[in-house]
Design a binder for these strands. Structure first.
Lengths: 211, 211
DNA sequence: CGACTAAACGGACCGCGGTCCGCTTCTATT
DNA sequence: AATAGAAGCGGACCGCGGTCCGTTTAGTCG
């Protein structure tokens, strides 16, 4: 009896039929192509279904909604980012000090979020809260705060540090206020230092930009 | 010559025709009634137009979009809150210390945001950034930070303090994590103290909740 | 007061997200 | 290999947000 593929394993909730799984992949690939070539707005459910050679209903059965599809696309493209944090080279990955890792995290998160801005917007509700990458980021920041010996409600502090890195805020800063990624990252670093409470021991970085 | 009503005054951009202004009021009133009686989802543009006795096109000419309409509704209902901050009784209004005003601000902002959650969601993009109340809140927090003698990029710090008070985060905390308004407010107070840097002089409040 | 123009109006129309249901295909079982 | 039933499938259909354009009306000026 082959144990690798038969019994439900108790964590996969339902098991997807082979053709269903195939269609999921076809749809994700088609969606990615469409995004690449014509932008997020071109991904209408009908256009996508036509391109993937399936019916419209299939799109919804696989992904719940258009937003769910976008979230799936995001998940896929952010998984390598997660890997870089968990096991990539420092300072993002393990090996650097917690403070440096936190800073690297902030910068890369800002860049990633802005890069995927259109997709994140299109993922709407599903993309702004409670989908995999956000939960992962919260866990990671919380962990780093712990490493830094911060006291207090670490869960809340992690949320508070993550909140200004969400798209609406970042886009406001970039598009309306005209700030650069560098400037935003520097300000965020300053925020981090205040939250972790290392005000006095400002090291080599010379402090945050004052605009 | 009556100066109160004729020349454009140079700040009102276009001047709205009398019937147009009347229809705006009729629509806002009808929308408020509909929200009150049947909830935000019942405010479809057609239902609203029918109820207000105007054509569907008029809704869009007056408010740009359904989201714009919701934002207008929000603006109206938040104007009294703004007044309470600018000239109401302490600690929300002037008279209390800046730190107390900031705390009062946070609590009332949390309550207000949760109270209007459905409307804010429906206002979507228009309601989450760059509409009057948000800009007002940012200005106010920034001012209070200044009063407290905080150094650094006050604009960014204000944004960072406001970000965790936006609906997606608040709803996550209330609905998923099951936290109370009190607990959230307490955590936010702690965040404020970290940002303003008054860690050592913890006064009578005994610190934030640790969950 | 009558005429002229810009603004406002209404509702038919369009495209998209989402649902529904009768038909097809997969897979487990014997 | 045959079969039963669950899971998946497709596309017609629906309701809503948003646009468009021919018609009406408010305000202005001679």
């Amino acid at each position: 009896m082959d144990p690798s593929r038969s019994l439900p394993m108790a964590d996969e909730p339902a098991r997807e039929r082979a053709d269903a799984a195939r269609n999921r992949e076809i749809l994700l690939a088609a969606a990615a192509e469409l995004v690449e070539s014509d932008g997020v707005d071109a991904v209408t459910t009908e256009a996508l279904a036509r391109r993937a050679g399936v019916g419209k209903g299939t799109v919804f059965r696989r992904f719940e909604s258009r937003e769910g599809l976008m979230a799936a696309l995001l998940d896929r493209s952010e998984s390598e980012w997660q890997a870089a944090i968990l096991s990539g080279p420092p300072p993002l990955g393990p090996g650097a000090s917690a403070r440096d890792r936190l800073r690297a995290f902030g910068r890369s998160r800002i860049e990633l979020t802005l890069r995927h801005a259109a997709l994140i917007r299109a993922a709407g509700h599903a993309g702004t809260r409670a989908y995999a990458p956000v939960a992962f980021a919260a866990m990671h920041v919380r962990y780093l705060l712990g490493e830094l010996g911060v006291s207090g409600d670490l869960g809340y502090l992690a949320t508070a540090l993550l909140a200004p890195l969400e798209i609406p805020i970042l886009e406001q800063q970039v598009e309306v206020e005209g700030r650069s990624v560098e400037a935003i990252a520097a300000s965020w670093d300053d925020l981090v230092d205040r939250v972790i409470g290392s005000r006095s021991l400002r090291g080599s970085d010379g402090g945050a930009a004052r605009r």
